[in-house]
Structure formats: structure tokens, C-alpha cells
Amino acid sequence: MSLLPSFELIRAASLAEVVAARRSHADCRLLAGGTDLIANLRHGLGSPATLVDITGLPGMQEIAIEPAGLRIGAGVALSRLVDDPLIRRQAPVLAEAAAAVAGPTHRASATLGGNLCLDTRCVFYNQSEWWRHSNDFCLKHRGTVCHVAPTGNRCHAAYSGDTAPALLVLGAQAELGGGGGKRWIALDELFREDGAAHLALGADEVLLSVRLPIAAGLTAGYEKARLRRAIDFPLAGVAVSLRRDGDALAELRIALTGTNSRPLLVSGCETLIGHPLDADALQQIGKLVQKQVAPMRTTIAPAHYRRRVAAALASRLAARLFSAPTPA
């Protein structure tokens, strides 16, 4: 017996082929590295009749400096992001976040696009078919009740991709392509706070690439809390970017993963601009984070731990970056 449900694999060589495949095949899923999708299909989380391999689309494997910034194709493997000299020079925080994803074998096939579009996660969802069946499934897939918040009517599964916060603190944009052509949006607009439908992609749209503005004088970093030091998804992950002007903070962005159904750009950081990052300011950062995150009982670590660890990681990381030498 096969481990995977039966499906047809279509290798798309152009965006038009992806759009055509999705129009003519009702139950269709996009396949990049497959490290998330194939594992989920093996767990019976969906049985699409068609998979469309998008890694061969033009531009998907490119990393290039363009007038508008550094553009990275959605099909670029995470292992390449970790090692690429251009990424390490222009966006070291992205290399750092990519290196924190899963293990080295996963990173060799996992792509940036797949990491950004990663399905949300929950202890009641990422389980085998028989496990979920014995629990009468759940709202996100085949069931009617959310076991995390049974009185509510939405899924709270956690967004758990590591690279999204790193890209968000760099002000990344995302290029989407579909039947209506191509468009650029702020990466932040790709996500929604809904564990069962966390991507704001049109039905026939594909994430083609991301673009980072080249920002001088910005330092950035990424840190994640996880159960084991390797392989594990973030219980909470935090990226911070900042620019220091003398003794004062001139720019600050904080983004989180693992705590909500979408990666979260923390709001309210502007109140700290123009002041030194002293103990009060660091406490303020912790408070901003604690107030905005909404971890639910979707991991085996309790939600209050993830809330507190997110705040602690954010203020520690900000302090470290503030005292680090300014990049050239």
C-alpha cells in the first residue's frame, strides 16, 4: 500500500501552466520542497488529486540585486540562503533565520516560498489520521469543533515559519502571480490571523519572489525558543532590526512567529525612537510583545510560557543588537 494518497504530479514550466492546471483540476496543491506538504499528506491532512511542482517556474531560483532591492525567488532552497554570499552580506538575518529551520537535510530541499506559506500548526492537527479520528478531528480539517478553544468558531493553529519575521523586520515585499498577472504587496499583507486560512493569496496565485530594500546601517537578528536545539519548530521566534544614531534608537522593528496564526509585526515601537535603549525601554519592548501576542494551547509547552519567552527574547535581542557595532 502506498504511503501517500494517489495524485497526479504536474511540473509547471510557466505561471500560465500553473494557472491552467489549477483551473482544470479542482483539488490542486502547490508543491515546492515538499518538506511540509508531503509530511502533511502522509498524515492524511488532505488528499489532493493534483500536485503542481512550481520549482521550475522562471525566476524561482534566482537571487539578484535589482534597482528596487534584493530579490529572492520563492524556490530558493533554505540551505542556499544560509550560504549565499549576497544574502550573508545584504540580509544576514535571513541567513540566520533560514539556518534555524528544521535540520540540515530538510534545508537542502525546503524552499523560502514553502517556508513563508507553511501550513499553521497545532498539537491537535499535526497528528496521524487515526489519532485525529479518535478525537473526532477538529475545525481546521474534517471536524466541527476546535479543541483549543471549543466555544469559538475559528482555528488558532500557530504560524511557525522562521523566515517570515526576519523578512518582516527588513520591510520585505512579496511578488504574487496568478491569472490576473503579477502584483507586489507588503509581505505583512500576505498573512491573516486565521489558523485555517492564514494566507491572503488568491485562489490561482503563487508566491513568486520576495524583495528586500537595501537599508544602510540596519542591524538585525533572529532568535527562537524551541524544545530541542535542532529540528524543532519555534515555540516563539523573534526578529529585531534596529538602527542606532549615537546613543539613541533611530529605527526599530520587531516581528514574531510561533505565537499567533500569522507572523506578527509588533506595533508601537515608534514610541521608543529618539531615546537610548535603557532598562526602561527594554521593559517597554517586553510589554509591547506580551500585549500583542496571542499564543493558544496549540503546543505542548503552555501558552503563558510562549508569551513570556517571546517578550524575553525580544528585549534580549534588542539589547544585544543595540550594543553591537554598527554594520558597514
Binding site: 504511503l3 515538499g34 508531503i38 509530511a39 502522509r42 498524515h43 540551505s79 537535510t105 530538510h106 530541499s109
Partner: peptide
């Protein structure tokens, strides 16, 4: 394992380690 967790299925594809259990 049932997908990507343990590494027991690691093979080399064009010299790079890959999970045979997640590769079509």
C-alpha cells in the same frame, strides 16, 4: 517515522543529503 522527523531514510541525491521519505 511518518515523515521527516528521524533522518533514518537519509540518502544522497546529487551528493546532498535528502529525506527519502519526503521525496517523490
Amino acid at each position: 517515522c511518518d515523515g521527516g522527523e528521524c533522518g533514518a531514510c537519509t540518502v544522497l541525491i546529487d551528493g546532498a543529503p535528502q529525506h527519502a521519505c519526503l521525496t517523490l
